[in-house]
Design a binder for these strands. Structure first.
Length: 393
DNA sequence: GTAGGGTTAG
């Protein structure tokens, strides 16, 4: 596997990082992603965040295929780069390990900073906390926060505290999160809208609506602006109160000078779907562009899933084709649901087209899953497959 | 998107 990296990096033509980034967006095959990333020239004039983003995407593609050894050799190879002495560069490695859910390697990289000659501040500390959260080790975050900040004499900033708050919320402990916020106030660390948002989300998702409303007041008292994300959290809580209520909140959002985004409209769609109003949900989808929004993978996932749920598999298939065109493909389980439904409805050509496309789009480790599904559904390869290939191309 | 942080799983 590691030989793949060497092979690809020596045989591909050099391209710019920004070009690599846009190609990576639509490339789900980890080997091809790796080839694109390796061929991206590092002395490119692109700003640093472009290459950081490209690295994250590559790591994400590899992680989806469980290619952890490849991720390690890719990231470890950067430790011999002279830039490793710069904290942001090293921090990007820690963050990428987090993206892959490889917390042990993230921690190891943090501990290696002395020998690599990289100074520590809250930047790398925050990357480490971020890696811990990305790896879903929520209950480890408070321990890490205390031990690391003490051992390496790092002074946590508002972002560090924000991650502590987020971790407590993910761990289902909003009261601990609120204690952190109160502690920040005492220490004179700014309490921002961003640090508060996970708490609000947590309270709503636990059904503690009154507490959530009181918490919102608390935020406003501290001068936190209620921004689009806060509104989206409020909207998420209103999804099961009917689409009318969601629309009200979207109006309220506009009236306070905020622009509803794709996530806001996705919630509206979900709300329609929950009431069985599929036509209305589809209208929201079709109207996204008018509102200056673009459908994302969650948009397609929601629509495909709910089309299937209401037995409208052909409509689901049409939306699936849109998602392929937009390079925003729903997850495997949603598409499996669609494939099964199409077969049940004897839409064999569509089902074969779906599987044919997915075999090309999904990483190789899922190929077996698709083959198995193909077998279970009795979709054996036949003469008419040539026709299907043309139809799905 | 500009070092590191918040919202979408039915």
């Amino acid at each position: 596997m590691a030989s793949t990296i060497r092979h690809l990096s020596t045989t591909t033509k050099k391209i710019s990082i920004s070009k690599a980034k846009s190609r990576l967006r639509s490339e789900h095959d980890p080997d091809k992603a790796l080839a694109i990333f390796s061929s991206a020239s590092s002395n490119d004039s692109s700003p640093p965040f472009v290459s950081r983003y490209a690295q994250d995407l590559t790591v994400r593609r590899l992680a989806k295929s469980h290619r952890f050894a490849d991720i390690e050799s890719l990231l470890e190879s950067h430790k011999s780069n002279p830039q490793i002495k710069q904290e942001p560069f090293l921090s990007s490695l820690i963050r990428s390990y987090g993206v892959a859910g490889m917390f042990d390697q993230a921690l190891k990289t943090y501990q290696e900073m002395d020998q690599l000659g990289t100074p520590r501040s809250f930047i790398s500390f925050n990357s480490l906390l971020s890696a811990c959260i990305q790896s879903k080790l929520y209950n480890k975050v408070p321990v890490l926060f205390n031990e690391i900040s003490e051992k390496y004499r790092v002074l946590p900033d508002k972002v560090s505290f924000g991650m502590l708050v987020k971790a407590y919320c993910e761990d289902g402990k909003p009261e601990k999160a609120i204690e952190v916020l109160e502690g920040m106030e005492k220490k004179g660390v700014e309490v921002t809208t961003i640090v508060c948002t996970p708490v609000l989300n947590c309270l709503y998702s636990k059904g503690k609506n009154e507490e959530a409303e009181r918490f919102l007041d608390w935020m406003v008292e501290r001068g936190c602006e209620l921004d689009a994300v806060v509104y989206n959290v409020k909207i998420s809580n209103a999804v099961n109160q009917g689409a009318e209520r969601v629309k009200e909140l979207i109006e309220e959002m506009k009236n306070s000078g905020l622009k509803p985004d794709t996530i806001s409209y996705n919630y509206l769609m979900t709300s329609y779907c929950m009431s069985g109003m599929m036509e209305e949900a589809k209208k929201v989808y079709e109207g996204l562009r008018v509102h200056g929004c673009k459908a994302n993978a969650a948009t397609f996932r929601t629509l495909v899933f709910n089309s299937c749920k209401s037995g409208e598999y052909e409509k689901g298939y049409k939306i699936f084709k849109d998602s392929v065109r937009e390079h925003r493909i729903p997850d495997f389980n949603t598409l499996k649901y669609l494939a099964k439904g199409l077969v049940e409805k004897k839409k064999i050509k569509e089902a074969k087209g779906l599987i044919h496309t997915m075999k090309k789009k999904f990483p190789p480790n899922l190929l077996n899953a698709w083959r198995k599904l193909e077998e279970n559904l009795g979709l054996h390869s036949t003469e008419e497959d040539k026709e299907v290939k043309e139809a799905s191309a």
